[in-house]
């Protein structure tokens, strides 16, 4: 079982994937996200950090055995149990299909929509409207898939659920208000089921779905 | 061993990943990319296709056993042999790290730089200059990694090399002219080694590295 340290900054949904995976697999994971253990923007620019992680990006994982890994999907995969990765060639490929889908078809539009509401990116009306349309497409596809399924791959939580749920986390917390998300009941049911799993809850705490679509925070 | 059909359009570098993986693993892969087998924009909008692949995107894989899969990384992974995926937990995680790196840190800037030269998108000077800088960063990181390695993970070709090489394919063919790429000799050596592998060659044919940086195609 893997054991090591995850370097990240607080509230990093990418790091949550690895943390939740570790909750399921039992991997011993220390999280270094606040000083003195780790200060984003400083620690990750030190020669010591860059010698292990040349890009300086986080999340970054260092095993107690010295093994270093970057890219959140790779770290989450490494910290998973076999069950989470998919227990057949088909299932493990389907898990990766959803992981790719999250990065390709959810994260760009979720970020474009949510970041201005967090005040961390300039608001652009056209970009936000387009992001909404992209998000509708992704949610419709997910909703159709979850119409006859509890989880994305197989009968239990897998890395697919962990990854897609984390990529939707900020959208549900900030902008997917009831009037918007009501068109995707299967996705809502699936998301709530996920965040209420003890392993998710330990990492995410109580996740409150937004009651009103947050507007950009000037 | 997997056996099935890959739906795509000709010269789709994303589909190449799966095709090359199949060459290594021995998976029996039929490629449907031209009429009458498959016409991009028509066949992928038919109810029959959409019932298997709701997003209508390609590449899309359908096994002879009926198993369907989308997302090029998932398809390539499925068609791989265990050796290509990495033969240890560390190696398989490192393979996925490079797969993520390709999608996150190469494809966006390669697309921004190359698309205008193919006439796919409007030229934008600022976007192109930014893309060049991002490409330099990615190539520098790769060059450092390959300074003491022949391949990206382990001692032999893995899905990491297949994925990263394919994500750089159009950049080497169109814009990475000798004056630009000379700063990354290890990457150049590695790329040429890859494309000269019989399995790569069968799929890509003779890849000619550009002699002059292509300009946007008005």
């Amino acid at each position: 079982m893997a054991a090591g340290t995850l370097y990240t900054y607080p509230e990093n949904w990418r790091a949550f994937k690895a943390q939740i995976a570790a909750q399921y697999s039992g991997a011993k994971l220390k999280v270094a996200s606040t000083p003195p253990a780790f200060s984003f923007g400083q620690t990750n620019r030190t020669p010591a950090f860059l010698s292990n992680f040349p890009t300086g990006k986080v999340p970054a994982y260092q095993g107690d055995d010295g093994f270093c890994l970057t890219e959140s999907n790779a770290i989450a995969y490494y910290l998973c149990s076999d069950a989470l990765r998919g227990t057949s060639p088909q299932a493990s490929a389907q898990v990766l299909q959803w992981v790719s889908f999250a990065d390709a078809d959810i994260v760009p539009s979720a970020s474009a929509w949510v970041f201005p509401t967090l005040g961390i990116m300039q608001f652009n009306k056209q970009a936000t409207e387009q992001a909404k349309e992209e998000m509708k497409r992704a949610l419709a596809y997910l909703n159709q898939h979850l119409n006859t399924r509890t989880f994305l791959v197989g009968e239990r939580v897998s890395l697919a659920d962990i990854t897609v749920a984390c990529s939707l986390l900020w959208a549900y917390k900030q902008v997917l208000e009831p009037a918007f998300r009501q068109a995707y009941p299967n996705v809502n049911r699936w998301f709530v089921t996920c965040i209420n799993q003890p392993q998710f809850k330990t990492v995410l705490g109580e996740v409150k779905l937004c009651e009103k679509m947050a507007q950009f925070d000037a | 061993m997997a056996a099935g059909t890959l739906y795509t359009y000709p010269e789709n570098w994303r589909a190449f990943k799966a095709q090359i993986a199949a060459q290594y693993s021995g998976a029996k892969l039929k490629v449907a990319s031209t009429p009458p087998a498959f016409s991009f924009g028509q066949t992928n909008r038919t109810p029959a296709f959409l019932s298997n692949f709701p997003t209508g995107k390609v590449p899309a894989y359908q096994g002879d056993d009926g198993f369907c899969l989308t997302e090029s990384n998932a398809i390539a992974y499925y068609l791989c042999s265990d050796a290509l995926r990495g033969t240890s937990p560390q190696a398989s995680a490192q393979v996925l790290q490079w797969v993520s790196f390709a999608d996150a840190d190469i494809v966006p800037s390669a697309s921004a730089w190359v698309f205008p030269t193919l006439g796919i998108m409007q030229f934008n000077k600022q976007a192109t200059e930014q893309a060049k800088e991002e490409m330099k960063r990615a190539l520098a990181y790769l060059n450092q990694h390959l300074n003491t390695r022949t391949f990206l993970v382990g001692e032999r070709v893995s899905l990491a090399d297949i994925t990263v090489a394919c994500s750089l394919l159009w950049a080497y063919k169109q814009v990475l002219e000798p004056a630009f790429r000379q700063a990354y000799p290890n990457v150049n050596r590695w790329f040429v080694t890859c494309i000269n592998q019989p399995q790569f060659k069968t799929v890509l044919g003779e890849v000619k590295l550009c002699e002059k940086m292509a300009q946007f195609d008005a």
């Binding site: 990093n12 967090l118 005040g119 970009a127 | 796919i120």
Partner: peptide, 30 residues
């Protein structure tokens, strides 16, 4: 922590590139 979210490379324009690529290759394939 929130501000750090913008540190990660996010391809905001990806949908636009996907659309352009799709049109181009649909066009090429008649």
């Amino acid at each position: 922590g929130i501000q750090c979210l913008t540190q990660d490379s996010i391809w905001f324009d990806k949908p636009r590139y996907d659309e352009a690529e799709r049109r181009f290759y649909e066009g090429m394939n008649g």
